[in-house]
Write a protein that binds this DNA or RNA. Structure first.
Lengths: 152, 152
DNA sequence: GACGGTTGTAATATATCACATTACAGCTAA
DNA sequence: TTAGCTGTAATGTGATATATTACAACCGTC
């Protein structure tokens, strides 16, 4: 089991929108090329980011813009925006029909649920601690290191 | 996306093995009845718990036994035993073909990977903090509360 | 105002995976 | 030897992630 790639795609999209904002026409096809997926996937993810108030787009004209500062967007915001984990169901899928006639069966939910929620929250808190400013900065840094290595 | 129910089934199994150890013949059919799944699923999960050194079984004769003390088994041990998350791949599925000709594309992995690993580890650490002794105790407690409520 | 380029989204296809189910050989205790 | 159980393979089925095609709605520009 894995959390779908729409999450890392979302991070990639926002990073690229900022990174290329003054250089290229950052449309869905350009992004799809950088990410390595179909343009429709990019548009779908951008739609979800738009609904979450993170980016802004316009039909017809090309290019998305961020509506928040990079340091106000966390990994968690993107994770949430693209629906990485269903809010109702949670990260852990509980077996659905424990037997109510069995003392263990009818209490296991009660006993486990909060601990599972806590584990999920611990992961989500970690995601909150990184902002897209961190990601973009680290990306620029990595690119700089590349050109330094070339010179040697 | 969700972590499969084999994890909560595993917890249920160990809890029931301990809870009923002096009362019933705890075979795969009995467990399947308590959990509400097919007996083969139970046997599969028990197989994985056995490979992880948590339970011990015998062909022919019925009933599994724990090979560790309850307070030496954590939720994480079960999570790991049943392969809730693939060790190679990790919890987060990264899009697989970021473009190496794009500065963002060829660096996004480097920049994101450690942060994703950290988030996953935070969740797993939480799972480590609960032992099956906690779960069984809370279950007995819950059962006691039931009979108290009846008397009122 | 017609046109090229773009977005938003529906519809469909495909592969993978979780779980269910059947079947049966191997084993143990009585 | 028999009854009952386990271990596991094989197969079915539904759900889901991602890819892809198609097209209407829309914008800036000539």
């Amino acid at each position: 089991m894995q959390i779908g790639s729409k999450f890392t795609i979302g991070v990639h999209i926002i990073t690229a929108i900022d990174y290329f904002k003054d250089m290229d026409r950052v449309n869905s096809e350009f992004l799809a090329g950088s990410i390595g997926v179909n343009p429709v996937i990019v548009r779908t993810v951008i739609s979800q980011l738009r609904e979450a108030g993170i980016v802004q787009t316009q039909r017809g004209s090309s290019g998305a813009e961020l509506t928040k500062r990079l340091d106000e967007i966390t990994l968690y915001d993107i994770y949430k925006a693209v629906g990485s984990v269903d809010t109702e169901e949670g990260l852990f899928h509980f077996h659905e029909q424990p037997n109510p006639d069995c003392p263990v069966g009818r209490n296991i939910h009660k006993v486990l649920d909060q601990r599972l929620i806590d584990a999920q929250k611990a992961m989500e808190e970690k995601l909150r601690s990184t902002t897209l400013a961190d990601i973009v900065e680290d990306t620029r840094q990595a690119v700089n290191n590349e050109s330094n290595e070339e010179k040697e």
